[in-house]
Design a binder for these strands. Structure first.
Lengths: 217, 217
DNA sequence: ACAGTTTTTCTTGCATACAAGCGCTGTTGA
DNA sequence: TCAACAGCGCTTGTATGCAAGAAAAACTGT
C-alpha cells in the first residue's frame, strides 16, 4: 500500500479515536515532519478524508478536523438511525444461522463488558455489535456506508456513553434488537434500531453539553 | 476554487453524464494534457473521486471509472431505496408548505416531460423530483448523502428509462409518493419510495442486460 | 516454434522547487 | 490612542524531477 493510503488510515484513526481533537488544525508541514514524508502524500491523504467529510478544507486556509454544527450533527445521528433501521430490517428478512450466531456472540460480549463496568470495553463491544448488524443486512454497500458513518460519529458516541445509566439501557436495547431480528420481525427490528440510535430529548442536551468541553473528563 | 476542485467536479460530471464510459482508464498524463495542467491537480481530483467511490484505484496501476459488479450494483440500488424511503418518511412528518409546493411543481414538470415523450427531459425532471424529496426531509446530511448516491447511480438509471413503459409507470409512482407525503402518511411515503427505487424482478434483468452493452442505443 | 526469462519502457508515487494568497504585525497618520 | 494601510512571512497550491514497480516486448534456450 502507498504512503498516502497508510497515512489516510492513520489520520482517520487518530480522528476517530479522539487523539486529534475536533476542530484542530491539520498542518501539512507538521504532519509531514511527524510522519517523515514530504507534503505530497499528506495532502493526498487529507484530500481523501475531506472527500468523505471527516476533515474540512477551506481554500488557501488548510484543513481542520470537521466539527459539525449541532444541527448538522443531529441530522447525522438521524441519518445513522435510518441506515441502521434499514440494516435491521434487511437482517430480519435475510437472517442466516451464521449471522444469528454472530449476533448472540456480540450481545454476550456487550453483556460481559457491562458487568465488568468497563465503559471503554463496552464501547468496543458496542462497535462490534453494530458491525455485526450491518453485515447481517447482507448488503455490502449499505454495510460499508453504515460503518463509515458510525466511525465518523464515533467521537460523539464516546461522549454519550459517559452519561450515567446509558450503558445498561443500551444493552437492554441491544437485546430487543436481537430478539426482533431473530424473530424475523422486520418492522420491529427497524424501529428498535432507529430508537436505539436516534438522539432526542435528554440525550440531545447531553450531546450538545458534551461538545462544549470535549476534553473534560 | 482550486484547479483540483474544478477538475474534480468536471471529471465527476463526465462520469455521471456517461461521457466517460464505465470501466475506462483515467490516464493522469492524458488528463493533464487535456486540461492543460500538471499531473498534481489531476491526481488530487482522482483521489477525491476514489474516496467517494466513483473511481477505483489499484496501487501502481492507475485509476478507472468504477464499474461495480452486478451484485454490488443491486446492493447500491437497495441502499438508495432505503435512503429515499427515509427521506420520504421524514418529509411526510415535517412537510412545510414551501416543500409541498416544490413537490407539486416537480411533479408537474415530470408530467409535462412525459406528455412531450421526451425521455432525456423526463430524466432531468425525475432528477429534480428526487432532489426535492431529499430536501423535504429537512435533514441536510441525509439529503446530501442521497443526492451523492443518486448521482453515482445516474448512469444506470439512464439505462432503465429506456425500457418501454417505464416512464408512465414512474410518473404514476411519483404521484403516489407525493400523495402520501402530503397526507402525512409516513409509512406510506416510505414504502412508495422504496418500491419506486428498488430494482427487482424484470427491472433487474433489464439492468444487467443493459450493462453488457452500455453504449448500444 | 514455443515458452520462459530478461530487458526496456511507460506509468505511478513521492520529493522538491516555485509561485501565489492570506494573515499578521508594525508603523504612520489623524 | 485607535484605526487603517503597507510590508513581510508563512502556508497552500501547482509544477517538475526522480525513482521504483509493473506491463509489454524482445530474446534465448530447448
Amino acid at each position: 500500500m502507498s504512503h498516502a493510503q497508510r497515512l489516510r488510515q492513520r489520520i482517520e484513526d487518530e480522528i476517530v479515536s479522539g487523539e486529534l481533537a475536533l476542530g484542530s488544525r491539520l498542518d501539512e508541514n507538521q504532519l509531514a515532519a511527524r510522519f517523515g514524508v514530504s507534503r505530497t502524500p499528506i495532502r493526498e491523504a487529507l484530500l481523501q478524508l475531506a472527500a468523505t467529510g471527516l476533515v474540512q478544507t477551506k481554500p488557501r486556509r488548510g484543513a481542520i478536523v470537521s466539527a459539525p454544527e449541532p444541527h448538522l450533527l443531529l441530522a447525522m445521528f438521524e441519518a445513522m438511525a435510518e441506515m441502521e433501521a434499514a440494516c435491521g430490517r434487511l437482517a430480519a428478512r435475510r437472517l442466516v444461522p451464521e449471522d444469528a450466531e454472530a449476533l448472540q456472540t456480540a450481545l454476550a460480549g456487550c453483556k460481559a463488558a457491562m458487568t465488568l463496568e468497563d465503559p471503554e470495553g463496552y464501547y468496543a463491544e458496542n462497535y462490534v455489535f453494530h458491525t455485526v448488524v450491518y453485515r447481517a443486512s447482507r448488503n455490502a454497500f449499505l454495510a460499508e456506508q453504515a460503518l463509515s458513518l458510525h466511525r465518523r460519529l464515533a467521537p460523539y458516541r464516546r461522549l454519550q456513553l459517559r452519561v450515567r445509566q446509558r450503558v445498561p439501557q443500551s444493552l437492554a436495547e441491544h437485546e430487543a434488537i436481537v430478539a426482533a431480528i431473530v424473530a424475523g420481525d422486520e418492522a420491529g427490528a427497524a424501529e428498535a434500531l432507529r430508537s436505539h440510535v436516534i438522539v432526542q430529548g435528554d440525550r440531545f442536551t447531553d450531546l450538545v453539553a458534551g461538545l462544549r468541553a470535549p476534553n473534560a473528563a
